[in-house]
Each structure stands twice: as C-alpha cells, then as structure tokens.
Write a protein that binds this DNA or RNA. Structure first.
Length: 423
RNA sequence: GGAGGAAUGGCAGAGUGGUCGAAUGCGGCGGUCUUGAAAACCGUUGAGGGUCACACCUCCGGGGGUUCGAAUCCCUCUUCCUCCGCCA
C-alpha cells in the first residue's frame, strides 16, 4: 500500500510510473484523492462536533460539583443533540475511510526508474549471465528420471500420502536437501543475517501486512477452522515480526534469515512445465529479509544480489540474473531481480531466487517505522530474497552434475552431505 | 477441553464515573555539577489525525453498549497467567 502522503504529493509521477506495469492508475488515483479530501472534511467536522460536546460535558461536571445540578439539564440536552450529530458524521467518516482503504489496496507499488515497461516475462532484461553450460551426453536425463533411477525422490508416494506436488525425499536425496538448507543458512549467517525460526502458519493480519491478502488469497492454503494460512514463503512471518514496530535508527539495518517449508496452491498449473521439482505445492526455501532506512535500501538490494550470486558461484551452476519488467513485477515490489539457473537436461531456465525492494509499500501496511532520537517516526524500507529456493537447485545439481554412471556432489556441499557421489 | 484471574505509556505499576493522555519508579533524552565519568539535582520523554504553527480530535488488548461524561460500569472476542485434563 502506497503511503497516502506520497500519493497526495506525486500522483502524476505515480501514474506515469505505473504505466510501465501496463496499468492506467489515473482513475483510481483521482478517486483516492477525492476520497481523501472527503474523509478529511468529515474528520474536521466530526472533531469540531466532539470538541463542542466535550466542552459541554466538562461544564456539566463543574455545575454538579458546585451543587448547581439543576442548571445542567439544558446543557445535557444540547450535548445529547451533539452526540447524535457526531454519530451520523462518524458513520459517514467510516464509510469514506473504508472506501479509501479499498482503493489504496488496489494500487500496486511504483516501479523503480530502472524498471522497463513490458508485458510479461518475455520483456524481462537479462542483466548478468555466468557459467558454462555443461556438455552432457546423449543419455543425459531430466532430474525426475535421475531421482527415480537413484531412488532420491518418490513423487508417487507423495501422491499417495497427500497429493500431487508433495514429493517424498529419500536417502541421499533427503540428505542432499538437508545439506543445502544448512549450507545456505551458514552462508547467510556469515553474511550477517540472524537466523530465526518462525511459525509456518500465520494469521489474517500477517497476510495483509506483507500483501498476500487481499490480492492473492487463492494462492495460500487456508485453515478455515482457525482462520490461519500456511505460509507461501518465510517472508510473511519474518516481515510481520516488525508489524506495528518502531525501530531506533541505530538498530538498522535488521537482517534475518530463516529456513521454512513453503506452501502454494498453484491453482490451475499442470503439464510438462510443472514436472518433477519444477513446481510444487510444498517446497523448502531459505529466505533473507532486511529492514533498511530509505537512503540505504537500494545499496542493500545490490548487496543481496551480490550475496546470492556468491552462493550460486560456489555451487558452480550456470545462472543468469533478470531485472523484471513492469508487467512481470510483483504487486508489492518496486524492483525485482530474478535468478535463474540453467537446467541442462530440460534445456530451460529455472527461477531459484527473487530479490526485491518493496520500499515503503509493505512498511506502510505493517506500520513498520524507525526514528532517530526525538524525531517523528518514519516508514522503513523492507527487502527480501530467496537464498535460496531448494527444489530447483536440487534439480539443477542432479541434472548438471550427472555423468555416465552417477551424480557428483558439488565440492562445497560434501562436508554437509558426507558423501561425494550418488550412484 | 473444564474452572478461576488478568490485560494501562519502552518496562514496572497506581488509577472503580467528571480537565486522566493518565500518579509514581526505572529506563531514554537535555541540562547543572565534574578534567572526564558516576552519583545527586533540575527539566523533558507514547502514537495517529489535523494545522504554516497553535487550537482541536482519537487511542488505556479488539469490537459493541450504558451515560451529558468511561481507563473506570455492561456485553462480546482475543491473548496471557494459575489449577485440572490431555499430550511431543
């Protein structure tokens, strides 16, 4: 949610920037400005009415105290009348405020100046590419066949226990997965991110706080009986730690990392592109989250990109970095870099990380602020990224590290797996 | 799940109908004193709306009600604590 103050000051610039998303926000913006004015007008009138009523109440109090209770009667009646007026004003104010809120929820974040206009993923810009694509023999297999051949992942068993998209990892497959989680957490903590373990279910307020609600309701699994949602990413519980929080400037930046399973309904996606580990209902991810002061948030974003690059370099996987175009940019993000590794056996790129700056968009919903000394609190900036998402990394390792009779384990992971080869 | 108790400012903790946004203590900030620091003393110290700035309005867990007037009374929800039950 964009700060209202910002919309008042820069609605034209916002409209121009949102064109890059292919969205004409002008009608919504002018409605917001109009509702805002209406709301403020009603607020002023309500305040005046209440001020008058308060004054009379105080007078009545004084009259009673001085034993002139009889004189209070007419004041009581006047006060009652004011109270009735205020009730009506309050109702109209609530309606205006609610309408304003609804309109504000419709508005996505303003793209950063470096974001190009574009329709969809085809218009994303490749800003970096690294790593040789390995030459694999003709009998190179996609990861789902390797997983079956070496008994690493059992997709059918997952179907039996739960349903499609909930694989069972076995033996060295499970161990490799655990090794990756530990490896990522170690690298993140070394880079100054504090490790946290967070709940995997969140309440409604948290869903709103990070922007999954109300826009992406259908993406999350919902537990109706308790009105809780399974997290689609650790971003939700981690960032909501800071809901309704005022941080001291000296405590910024805040850097957290957490491992969590992620649950996504992914309604309506079937077919070859979701085969194997490519897209799951439950997957593992290690997330990094930062809270920054606005002046530093883009430097922080760069730092996160460099950090994620370092992880991919160490795994020696071929990867590229995309700057998302306006049309592909998530609702809450101002700037996003996607990381994709190349799946040699499938001959396609797989997204393994998405690193974003949300500027004040989430902070505004969260009421996440910071302050220096006696200054007025102001909205912080939030950022997050995957470092990294597991299943596709696993897929990439299986495919790119296969040879004629097995799969090598990347050098850096051997201390974590305890074996150097799957065969 | 059953029975009781509680929820107040960064923290602790007063306040049971009338200038209470709220005593007091601790903490924070500023100052006096000091070579410097500590101690002591003085001052200051919640958030949001609104205003050029004031005024003014809202907020004492959330929502609703009674009243001219609610932190204070009533209803309801949530959370926490104690006891019982169940349990990794």
């Amino acid at each position: 949610m964009l700060p209202l103050q910002y919309i008042r000051e820069a609605s034209d610039r916002i409209a121009d920037a949102l064109d890059k998303r292919g969205l004409d926000a002008r009608p919504i913006l002018s409605k917001i400005l109009q509702l805002d004015e209406e709301r403020r007008d009603l607020q002023t009138r309500l305040d005046q009415t209440l001020a008058e009523a308060n004054r009379k109440s105080r007078e009545i109090g004084v009259l009673f105290k001085t034993g002139k209770g009889a004189e209070a009667q007419s004041l009581k009646e006047e006060s009652s009348r004011l109270k009735e007026d205020s009730r009506e004003l309050q109702e109209r104010l609530n309606e205006a405020a609610e309408a304003l809120q609804e309109s504000l929820y419709l508005l996505p974040n303003v793209p950063h100046p470096s974001v190009r206009p574009g329709q969809d993923e085809a218009d994303n810009e490749v800003v970096f590419e690294k790593g040789a694509i390995p030459e694999l023999g003709e009998n190179a297999l996609p990861h789902w066949e390797l997983a079956r051949k070496f008994d690493l992942i059992d997709f059918e068993l997952g179907v039996k226990v739960t349903g499609a998209g909930f694989p069972v990892y076995k033996g060295k497959g499970a161990r490799l997965q655990r090794a990756l989680i530990s490896y990522f957490l170690d690298l993140n903590t070394e880079a100054g991110y504090q490790e946290v373990q967070v709940p995997h279910l969140v309440n409604e307020a948290s869903g709103y706080g990070t922007g999954q609600l109300p826009d992406k309701e259908g993406q999350m699994y919902h537990i109706g009986e308790d009105n809780l949602y399974l997290i689609p990413t650790a971003e939700v519980p981690i960032t909501n730690i800071f809901r309704d929080v005022i941080l001291e400037k000296g405590n910024l930046p805040v850097k957290y990392t957490a491992y969590s399973p992620c649950f996504r309904r992914e309604a309506g996606s079937y077919g070859a592109h979701v085969r194997g580990l490519n897209r799951l209902h439950q997957f593992d991810k290690v997330e990094i989250v930062r809270v920054e002061e606005p002046e530093n948030s883009y430097a922080a974003l760069d730092g996160m990109v460099i950090h994620v690059r370092g992880i991919l370099d160490s795994l020696e996987l071929p990867y590229r970095i995309l700057r998302l175009c306006g049309g592909d940019l998530g609702f809450t993000a101002a700037l996003t870099y996607d990381f994709e590794i190349y799946s040699t056996a499938q001959q396609r790129w797989l997204e393994v990380s998405s690193v974003s700056n949300f500027e004040a968009f989430q902070a505004n919903r969260l009421k996440l602020r910071y302050r220096q000394g006696a200054e007025k609190p102001q909205l912080a900036h939030t950022l997050n990224g995957s470092a990294l998402a597991l299943p596709r990394i696993l897929a990439g390792i299986l495919e790119n590290y296969q040879d004629s009779d097995g799969i090598r384990v990347p050098e850096v992971l051997i201390p974590y797996t305890g074996f150097d080869r799957i065969s």
